[in-house]
């Protein structure tokens, strides 16, 4: 089947790519761009491990064809750290021990970032709603919610 030409911006860098008609954004990120921070968990939109930000919105990259997001701006977990160091969200996740096995962490960070980008002072309920599509089988969630609250406080200053 014919390949399709797409152009996407990932973490600020433009990529011109040829993608297959069944190629998911998740596949493009991991296989073509070798950005393996984004994880494949359930593959059916339940676990949120593959969450990335597409045009300011958290989406499951397993449920989107790359051809559908032609022209979009995408942020993945690799886009968090900058020259000045770890992102406040990353620091907060470490500080609050919001990570155990770490498999859900990239998706959690992306859902949290999408929230804080649009709502810098979320309530606990708003944090829970933003993270409701992300499963964690280790932490029991409390540390993750604490970390997002901490990041919101520190980042907001």
């Amino acid at each position: 089947m014919a390949k399709l030409d797409v152009e996407i911006t990932v973490n600020g860098a433009r990529h011109k790519l040829e993608v297959g008609s069944q190629e998911r954004l998740l596949d493009t990120l991991r296989e073509q761009l070798k950005m393996t921070g984004t994880k494949e968990g359930c593959s059916v939109g339940e676990c949120g491990a593959c969450t990335v930000i597409v045009d300011d919105q958290a989406v499951n990259s397993c449920l989107v064809l790359t051809a559908q997001v032609d022209g979009s701006e995408i942020i993945t977990v690799e886009g968090l750290e900058s020259k000045s160091g770890l992102h406040p969200l990353q620091k907060a996740f470490i500080e609050k021990q919001a990570i155990q096995c770490g498999f859900c962490t990239p998706g959690m960070l992306m859902s949290a970032l999408a929230l804080l980008n649009t709502n810098p002072t979320p309530t606990k309920e708003e944090i829970k709603t933003a993270l409701e599509g992300n499963l964690c089988r280790c932490t029991g969630y409390q540390q993750i919610i604490d970390a997002v609250e901490m990041a919101a406080e520190e980042w907001g200053v």
Partner: peptide, 9 residues
């Protein structure tokens, strides 16, 4: 319906 990620799409 679904989750934030689902509702966004």
């Amino acid at each position: 319906i679904g989750s934030t990620q689902i509702r966004n799409r």
